[in-house]
Nucleic acid binder design. Structure first.
Lengths: 107, 107
DNA sequence: AATTTGCGCAACTGAATAGTTGCATATATA
DNA sequence: TATATATGCAACTATTCAGTTGCGCAAATT
């Protein structure tokens, strides 16, 4: 439990599923666990990891804790992706050109 | 060595650095290893993982193997992020509205 | 007041991971 | 042909990770 960054957090498929659920609306650990086969404690561990890297915020009401998704933190991944986005856009344009040239040949 | 998906691949900081370098131009394992403190074999292991999940393609010329970055595979991460993008855009718009309202009050 | 419910923490286990070292193979170079 | 270079593969190690089980505590319910 030393590495604690967003990329490490979203590497696990269960955690990605948790994030997708919480992006729709905040939930308690128990409510979340009902969506999965693993135990409540396993889900709670994932929640802990997601909270420690600030992908989740908690809001306590009584004995229930509602976990909220924090979009700003997820944006860090998006920012990192920026350097690659230009590449697949470039490739798409290249494909686009090829298709246009083929159309020109046919017509 | 069972899990082999893009999210798992980009979880490691060294592999992210490798991807960033190869996005600029293709390189051989030796050339890549010169950019890092770890051994050539360690880098080769990362390359293997990245290749197995198709983030890299290899092109052999003689005894050298040049590894190329595959943007299309990285796009999978971008597609997954799409479901969250709307959330931070929404938050930004909300902030935008607040700022506009404050301006209206001042004028 | 006694019990149930929601939750986190600690200890443990088996599997996966990143790294090292040593070795084998094929291509260049002397 | 002998040597140097580029690379991948296998074995081993220490660390990390996901999951389980058991426990304790505080808030709700009876």
């Amino acid at each position: 439990m030393i590495r604690r960054d967003v990329f490490q957090a979203i590497a696990d498929p269960t955690r990605r599923a948790i994030l997708a659920l919480l992006a729709l609306h905040a939930m308690t650990p128990n409510a979340l666990a009902e969506h999965f086969d693993s135990s409540r404690q396993a889900i709670s561990k994932h929640i802990k990891i997601l909270t420690e890297c600030q992908l989740l915020n908690q809001k306590q009401t009584g004995r229930e804790i509602h976990y909220h998704f924090n979009p700003q933190k997820m944006k860090e991944v998006d920012v990192w992706m920026e350097q690659f986005r230009v590449l697949w856009e470039k490739r798409f344009n290249k494909l686009d050109e090829i298709l246009k040239n083929q159309q020109n040949k046919q017509s």
